[in-house]
Nucleic acid binder design. Structure first.
Length: 211
DNA sequence: TGGCGGATTCACT
DNA sequence: GTGAATCCGCCAA
């Protein structure tokens, strides 16, 4: 995948990451999936971001790195969430991966095995940040992992052309504490995709800016 | 050092 | 729709 995307702000990168492929390698083999839902957590002004106000702690330190690494954290004491860090060093931006879909039947089978539950509908498998981390066996040991290294445990590959995708945008999920920032339409997903975690009736079509 | 709450999920009503 | 699970990061004291 073009490294250019890692230099962008989280808000610019979040829609562009839709359709890109995530590859996870474990001792069991490689799993490939496609990103179908993202959220932008960008800059120190965003009250929804862990790095709001430039808060720089052991946990958020990864967000301040040069774009192109993973930010993985534990939420509610039991689920991991994975982000793509973007933008320049010392400017904390991250794109939360909220849903993915397996590329092949093999990938689907591996993810279901890691999930360890009965999957009744597609979004049970990997529609939600905690679910997809479990389905891909992503935990804090991958925090800071470079995302451009096909020899590593986790990386991104070129997927679909973003201008061929039907993208919508809507407010982010579960961040009421973010006050006015909670309403901003900084969640992006592929319209009609069955792996998306939460549908929004008010979702608006998103058009990529002309380059 | 203590207390609080969360970028979630699942089981239950 | 509601509530529990579960624990670490954060900040105030």
């Amino acid at each position: 995948m073009s490294p250019h995307i890692y230099t962008l702000t989280a808000l610019q990168a979040a829609p562009l990451l839709l359709g890109q492929h995530v590859v996870r390698r474990t001792e069991d083999g490689e799993i490939r999936c496609r990103i179908v839902e993202t959220e932008s957590y960008g800059g120190s002004e965003d009250k929804g971001s862990h790095a709001y106000g430039g808060r720089r702690t052991a946990r958020t330190e990864v967000m301040f790195r040069t774009g192109g690494v993973a930010y993985v954290y534990l939420i509610y004491g039991m689920y991991n969430c994975v982000n793509v860090v973007t933008a320049a060093k010392d400017d904390p931006h991250a794109v939360l991966i909220r849903a993915v879909e397996p590329l092949t039947g093999y990938d689907e089978g591996q993810m279901a095995a890691y999930r360890g539950i009965t999957v009744k509908k597609p979004s049970d498998l990997s529609g939600g940040p905690g679910k997809l981390c479990r389905a891909l066996r992503i935990d804090k040991s991958l925090n800071g992992c470079p995302l451009n290294d096909p020899a590593g445990p986790l990386w991104l590959e070129q997927g679909d052309l973003p201008d061929a995708l039907d993208i919508v945008q809507a407010p982010r999920i579960n961040i009421s504490y973010a006050e006015e920032y909670a309403q901003l339409p900084w969640r992006f997903y592929l319209r009609g995709n069955p792996y998306v975690s939460v549908l929004d009736r008010q979702a608006q079509p998103f058009r990529l800016p002309k380059v």
